[in-house]
């Protein structure tokens, strides 16, 4: 690890100010990606701005017909939160299945969504549930937030404050793990609301998380496992690596979608 400075601001305003002081500064959320990257000397921030001291970024609240989760809320806290479990059980279950206990007790929803790892779980929930990313400067709808692998609509100096998930979808997330990392090789989040069906796929897209038009079209005809019979996901635009070719991922995605639909409630 290279030497770096460390600050732990108590307010969001101070954090934004510290972040703006240098292009080399980086915010630290749960550190599940950034710290290992620094340990391998692949990242060299001048100053780490630890967001853990900012009370307003933490916690879950119900706000009308939505659940609002502070960016610094850990996966374990989301998984165990009574409001989330009651209102969006699929989201609580997803959080409870991220990584291992260490990761779940350190990693945060804001960190995960800001990093937009192509195999992360949360982006699938955010996209399928049509959540809104609330930042220090604006609100970004999920459909325009994820812009590519490890890329988002966030601007330099812009921090995620919270993520707002609408309540009311019949939903579930199913994950088919890459055997080594146990990240999603194929992760499918399905959400069925009065407005229609949204299907988000993680772990497989060359551009990161994406919505699957053929699966959404199939499920629009009826939100059931049977409706997915014969659905074909094209392999174009999918990742190919030693753990799974694009062709394989394309074949597995509908199977995992079936499992998600069967589990949806």
């Amino acid at each position: 690890m290279y030497a770096f400075d460390y600050v732990r601001p108590a307010s969001l305003a101070d954090a934004v100010k510290a972040l703006g002081a240098s292009e080399e500064n980086r915010p630290l959320a749960g550190g599940q990606t950034l710290i290992p990257t620094m340990k391998q000397r692949l990242a060299m921030p001048a100053t780490l701005i630890d967001l853990a001291g900012i009370a307003e970024l933490k916690g879950v609240r119900r706000d009308g017909n939505a659940i609002v989760i502070g960016a610094m809320t850990t996966h374990a806290d989301v998984a165990g939160n009574a409001d989330v479990k009651a209102a969006i059980p699929a989201l609580a279950a997803l959080a409870g299945g991220i990584g291992d206990p260490h990761v779940r007790n350190s990693g945060t929803i804001g960190g995960s969504v800001a990093n937009n790892d192509p195999a992360a779980d949360y982006p699938a929930a955010v996209l399928a549930l049509n959540a809104t990313i609330i930042t220090t400067t604006r609100e970004i709808p999920a459909d325009s937030y994820f812009t590519g692998m490890f890329k988002t609509a966030l601007q330099p100096g812009e921090l995620i404050k919270a993520i707002r998930f609408p309540i009311g979808a019949k939903a579930a997330y199913s994950k088919f793990e890459q055997r080594a990392s146990r990240y999603a090789l194929v992760g499918v989040f399905v959400a069925h609301t009065g407005a229609g069906v949204r299907v988000a796929v993680t772990g497989s897209g060359a551009g990161g998380v994406f919505r699957s038009a053929p699966l959404e079209a199939a499920l629009a005809k009826g939100f059931s496992v049977d409706a997915l019979k014969g659905a074909v996901v094209p392999s174009t635009g999918l990742l190919s690596d030693i753990h799974g070719s694009a062709e394989y991922r394309a074949s597995v995605i509908p199977v995992i979608a079936e499992r998600a639909v069967a589990a949806a409630r």
Partner: peptide
Amino acid sequence: IYNDKGQLVTGSYMDYCM
């Protein structure tokens, strides 16, 4: 797994499955 340049593709537990 080595690629044809001799780089060990499975150089961490992210890719080498224990």
